[in-house]
Amino acid sequence: MKTDRRHEKEEALARKAAMAALADAPGETLKALWDEAGLPRDAQRLRGPETGLVTVRGRIGGGGAPFNFGEATVTRATVRVEGGSVGHAYALGRDKEKALLSAIADALWQDASRRNDIETKIIAPLQAAQAEADERRRAETAATKVDFFTMVRGED
């Protein structure tokens, strides 16, 4: 029972990580990977793709009580694929095709026989590209770090 619950939790974390990679992906990159992988684009649309707003929350002082900071555009979609599994997608921006493909990816991910396909052909390349871009950004920022040194003036 306990291992079941742990398995469920691990699975939820892996699914969330896959959804994060999809949400962060540039639409063009996702579409190119999708075509290259020859994955199906047809699915029953249960909701959307549709664009709406989320209100972004911050915290007073960085870690205090929440306040409403501003809004952001988000596009979401829900689909059902062959075999019956239902997939969801949410991402910042207004790219409806990206939301649709992301929802299909989420649905296929939940199908044990397709998960590996989605992980290796879509999620892994997206995560690799994002990690590389983040690493480059960190290294560029690190080059602007101030190295303080003290100048000794005059004679003792």
Binding site: T55, P66, N68
Partner: peptide, 15 residues
């Protein structure tokens, strides 16, 4: 922005 539906409030960001 007044033309769009609202999906909700995000969790507070962690700066």
């Amino acid at each position: 922005r007044t033309t769009l539906p609202r999906f909700g409030y995000t969790n507070a960001i962690d700066t």
